[in-house]
């Protein structure tokens, strides 16, 4: 199972998470987002970039509760809440956004 980006293939697991985290590119993120039926805008990108920075620093994808709390601290409560985050990522902000960000499934998600 693999995504196709500019003629290259990037392997993913059965749920769509890429297996080699270093193979992520912005182009790949757009491909994954399309599969997830998400049209990436600036706000999506801010969440995706935030997740990548978080992973870079702590080596984990944060649980959704932790993510929303962190977003709230950074951008205020009009963005740091469930409704807003599920509007951006209808199938779960942590799961879907992490997938697009090229991270593993958040620890604690089953």
């Amino acid at each position: 199972m693999a995504y196709s980006v500019n003629g290259a293939t990037v392997e993913h697991d059965e749920e769509g998470y890429i297996t080699d985290l270093s193979s992520w590119t912005k182009e790949l993120a757009d491909v994954i987002a399309t599969e997830e039926k998400i049209d990436m805008n600036e706000e999506h990108w801010e969440i995706v970039n935030f997740l990548r920075d978080y992973y870079d620093e702590y080596q984990i994808a944060p649980a959704v509760r932790v993510l929303i709390k962190a977003i709230k601290k950074k951008w205020g409560k009009e963005r740091g809440n469930n409704e807003y985050m599920y509007e951006l990522f209808p199938y779960g902000p942590a799961k879907q956004a992490c997938k697009i960000a090229g991270l593993p499934k958040p620890t604690g998600c089953v």
Binding site: E57, Y58, Q59, I60, P62, V66
Partner: peptide
């Protein structure tokens, strides 16, 4: 190297 993850515990 999972040692950086201890620093995320506060978020949890």
């Amino acid at each position: 190297n999972f040692s950086p993850t201890y620093r995320a515990l506060g978020d949890y």
